[in-house]
Amino acid sequence: MNAFRLVGDLCHLAAIVLLLLKIWKSRSVAGLSGKSQILFGLVFVTRYLDLVTNFVSPYNTIMKVFFLSSSIATVYLIYTKFKATYDGNHDTFRMEFLLIPCALLAIVVNHEFSPMEILWTFSIYLEAVAILPQLFMISKTGEAETITSHYLFALGSYRGLYIMNWLYRYYYENNFDVIAVVAGIVQTVLYCDFFYLYITKVLQGKKLQLPA
């Protein structure tokens, strides 16, 4: 494992910890898109089916189990325990606009036409766009809590670092997965607008607020 991959994974881990910390400390899921969290839950469920078929390493298993369980826990917290604080009126992005194209694309463009590979490919495509309901929600309300901004920054950095990892693996290990790389680039590009706001506002100590 190279440093980009490790730091990428740690950013992903940090993002999820920040998200749970925000919910736990504020006792509220205000400002969070339940739809994005459902999509991420679906991403992990469809991607980590290999937990039961392939053992890679303790690190790999622990991370997969953590991502899987934390994403399911987040969905649970939003829709049951802290439902009263969930801002469903602003979480209006239609999930089927993402689910259907990702499913169709996974059936057409994959490494191997088998159920496991199609589900893995679906998870890669879906992860690339799963943050859109959250970004859409921020664009509707015009603001985000600082800890939610930190969460999004860590989450966006993770796939950006994976791109560096893929470049490294291409040059030094002759390994290249076109599906993961293209989807990863799309995923990272979706965060660019947010990265700009994060650097120019949140890091200057201001709350993330969109111009009216």
Binding site: V56, E112, E117, T121, Y162, D177, I179
Partner: peptide, 10 residues
């Protein structure tokens, strides 16, 4: 196998 994706990456 060769066609399979990398199960190590998260």
């Amino acid at each position: 196998d060769e066609l399979d994706h990398d199960h190590d990456e998260l």
